[in-house]
Measured scan of single mutants.
Amino acid sequence: RTSMTEEYRVPDGMVGLIIGRGGEQINKIQQDSGCKVQISPDSGGLPERSVSLTGAPESVQKAKMMLDDIVSR
């Protein structure tokens, strides 16, 4: 199975929601999608934060859908 890494961007203000209490939400995204999700520690003052998604292409797609779902709330 091919693994890929894709850079994705999320609004900086949503990072807390994506990570969740004690990392609960980000762990759920990783478990449900099978994709490794790494959020860059700092946006460098930019409105968006970089997130790197690593996994099989379908896992990366699923993680993106889950991120979009959180961001659109």
Rank of each mutant, 00 (worst) to 15 (best):
M14R: 04
M65E: 14
V37S: 01
E6T: 15
R73W: 06
S33A: 08
G22N: 07
E58S: 09
E7G: 03
Q25I: 12
I29A: 01
S72W: 06
L46T: 13
Q25N: 14
M65D: 14
V51W: 03
D12P: 15
Q30F: 05
Q31H: 13
V71E: 03
L46W: 07
G45E: 11
Y8A: 03
K28E: 05
I70Q: 04
E48Q: 11
A56E: 13
G34E: 05
D32T: 10
Q38G: 07
G16P: 12
R21Q: 12
S52N: 07
M65H: 10
D42Q: 13
M4I: 09
S52T: 15
V60F: 01
I70A: 05
G22T: 06
S43M: 09
E48L: 08
S40Y: 06
P47L: 09
Q38D: 09
I29Q: 01
C35W: 00
S40C: 11
I70S: 03
C35F: 00
S3F: 15
V60A: 01
K62Y: 05
V60H: 01
R9V: 11
P57E: 05
Q38P: 01
R1C: 10
D68L: 02
S52L: 15
G55Q: 00
S59F: 02
R49S: 12
T5N: 07
R9W: 12
G23R: 09
Q25K: 07
I29L: 08
D68I: 03
Q31T: 14
G55M: 00
S43Y: 06
V51R: 00
D42W: 06
V60L: 06
G34K: 04
L46D: 11
S43Q: 12
R49Y: 04
R21K: 15
S59H: 10
S3L: 15
Q61W: 07
E48I: 07
L67C: 02
S59Y: 01
C35P: 02
T54Y: 14
R1D: 14
M65V: 13
G44M: 13
D12T: 15
Q61H: 06
L46E: 11
V10G: 03
I19T: 14
G34W: 00
M4T: 11
G34V: 00
T2D: 13
V37Y: 00
M14T: 06
A56P: 11
P41L: 07
K64S: 02
N27C: 07
E7T: 14
V60R: 12
K62E: 05
V37C: 08
P47M: 13
Q31L: 09
K36D: 14
R1N: 15
G16V: 02
R73V: 10
Q25L: 11
E6Q: 14
E24L: 06
R21D: 15
S3H: 13
G13A: 10
S72H: 14
S3W: 14
E48R: 08
I26K: 04
M14N: 07
Q31P: 00
V10T: 03
K36E: 12
G34S: 04
L17G: 12
A63F: 00
P41R: 11
G44R: 10
K28D: 03
E58M: 08
D42L: 06
G22D: 12
V71L: 13
T54K: 07
D32P: 00
S59Q: 11
S3A: 14
Q30Y: 00
S52E: 13
L67M: 11
I29N: 00
N27Y: 07
Q30E: 10
S72C: 08
S59C: 11
S3R: 12
S43L: 08
V15A: 11
T54H: 10
S50P: 07
M14E: 06
G55K: 01
V10L: 15
M14A: 09
T2W: 02
V10K: 02
D32S: 11
A63V: 01
M65A: 13
V15H: 06
E58P: 05
S59N: 11
P47V: 07
G20H: 02
E7P: 08
M66E: 03
S3N: 15
P57R: 08
T54E: 08
I19H: 07
Q30M: 15
E58G: 08
R1Q: 14
R49W: 06
D69S: 08
S43D: 12
R1V: 13
M4E: 10
V71G: 05
G23A: 07
N27W: 06
L17F: 10
V71Y: 06
M4V: 10
E58A: 10
S72V: 10
E58R: 06
G34Q: 05
D32N: 13
G45M: 06
K28W: 03
L46H: 08
C35G: 01
D68V: 03
G55P: 00
T5Y: 05
K28T: 06
Q61M: 11
Q38K: 10
I26N: 01
K62T: 06
V10I: 12
V51N: 00
M66L: 11
G13Q: 15
S72N: 14
Q61N: 14
A56W: 05
I39N: 02
I39P: 03
R73A: 14
G44N: 15
V15T: 06
A56R: 13
Q25H: 05
V51Q: 00
V71S: 05
Q31I: 08
D42M: 07
A56N: 05
K36T: 13
G22R: 12
S33I: 03
G34A: 04
Q25R: 12
K28H: 07
S52I: 13
R9P: 14
L53N: 02
T2V: 13
D12E: 13
D42R: 09
S72M: 12
L17H: 10
M4W: 07
N27K: 14
S59L: 02
E24A: 09
M4F: 14
G55N: 00
S72R: 15
R49N: 09
G20D: 10
G44S: 10
L46Q: 11
S33C: 11
M65F: 08
D68G: 08
K62R: 09
S3P: 14
G16H: 12
L17I: 11
R73D: 14
M4Y: 13
I70H: 02
R73L: 13
C35V: 06
Y8Q: 03
V60Y: 01
R21S: 14
I29V: 06
V71N: 03
R73N: 08
M65L: 14
I29R: 00
M66Q: 05
Y8H: 08
S50H: 14
S52Q: 13
G20C: 00
M66N: 01
S59I: 01
D12L: 07
E24P: 01
I18G: 04
G13H: 15
R21M: 13
K28V: 03
L46N: 08
Q30N: 03
K62M: 10
I39T: 02
M66G: 02
Q38M: 13
Q30A: 10
E6F: 09
E6L: 15
K36V: 13
V15P: 03
V10Y: 06
I70V: 11
K64F: 00
T54Q: 07
E58T: 07
I39Y: 04
S52F: 13
D42S: 11
R1P: 05
G34D: 05
G44W: 04
N27E: 13
S72T: 11
G55H: 00
S40F: 05
G16E: 14
G23T: 05
N27A: 09
V15M: 14
G20V: 00
V37T: 03
K64E: 02
M14V: 09
R73Q: 15
V51K: 01
D12M: 09
I26R: 02
L67P: 02
G16N: 09
K64R: 12
L53P: 00
S40D: 10
V60G: 01
G34I: 00
N27D: 12
I39G: 02
A63P: 02
D32F: 04
D12K: 12
A56S: 13
P41I: 12
L53C: 04
S43T: 13
E48H: 13
G44V: 08
P47G: 13
N27F: 10
S33N: 00
S33T: 13
P11I: 05
Q38I: 11
